[in-house]
């Protein structure tokens, strides 16, 4: 996919929303109902629902918590669009108000990891970081559950977020001591260096890959609008 740089931020937001929603409905038929698609006229649509946002509306939604979708598309299939919008709102509420709740850790992490993966695939500076890591994976999990998500790439193809552990040993693993630590990390409220030192996160395997991943995630944090600033 060829993504113009000026569309990277809204596209990353859309991918994050979808990743959170996928985690919310994991295993359900509707798990992919917000899979985003990049459209012309600087619009991004979510699944087959008819729900679509202008790029700048998505950015506004991330900053303010609210934005108006493309009404013409919305009204073409109002029922599915409304259902989709509800899902987006639910994801937004979790990010806005529920980020301290340990039960939301995976939903929050899904968004954060997907955002980083999107930057690893499209942001020129981040793409360059991973040139030397063609076949690599990072397992993410908690002490309680072990690895439950994996970021991986095969043969220099794009990086992808899997919402599960993969069979092969990960190149590196990032394990949170608690769901609370995972929540804080997902919204950028965990100092990665301190957390590694005090045991809130455990880093194992190819540490340089984790350092690059961590740096990419901080580039995302710097560039993406957020209500947690």
């Amino acid at each position: 996919m060829n993504l113009p740089l000026e569309r990277l931020v809204p596209w990353t937001l859309a991918r994050s929303i979808w990743a959170s929603q996928f985690q919310l409905l994991k295993g359900h038929d509707l798990a992919n109902s917000l899979l985003p698609r990049i459209c012309s006229e600087k619009t991004i649509s979510f699944g087959q629902s008819g729900l679509a946002f202008k790029d700048n509306s998505l950015v506004k939604a991330a900053k303010k918590g609210f934005a108006i979708p493309q009404l013409s598309k919305f009204l073409r299939s109002p029922f599915t669009s409304t259902a989709a919008l509800r899902l987006v709102i639910k994801v937004g509420q979790i990010h806005q108000n529920g980020w301290r709740k340990p039960g939301n850790a995976k939903v929050l992490l899904s968004a954060a990891l997907e955002a980083t993966v999107t930057y690893m695939n499209f942001h020129p500076g981040c793409v360059d970081l991973f040139v030397d890591h063609p076949n690599s994976s990072i397992g993410v999990g908690s002490e309680k559950e072990g690895v439950f998500m994996t970021i991986c790439r095969i043969n220099s193809q794009p990086w992808a977020l899997e919402h599960k552990a993969i069979k092969k040993q990960s190149t590196a693993t990032l394990i949170f001591s608690s769901d609370q630590a995972a929540c804080f990390s997902a919204v950028g409220n965990l100092d990665h260096m301190l957390a590694a030192g005090d045991g809130q996160i455990q880093l194992r395997g190819q540490i340089p890959l984790l350092e690059k991943f961590g740096y990419a995630s901080r580039v995302v944090r710097r560039e993406l609008p957020s209500q947690h600033e």
């Binding site: 990665h192 260096m193 301190l194 590694a196 030192g197 455990q202 880093l203």
Partner: peptide
């Protein structure tokens, strides 16, 4: 101190715990 301890002796570079 940013990161608590930085550089080659930063905990993450070794075995933090």
């Amino acid at each position: 101190i940013p990161g608590g301890i930085y550089g080659h002796v930063a905990p993450a570079a070794g075995l933090p715990r």
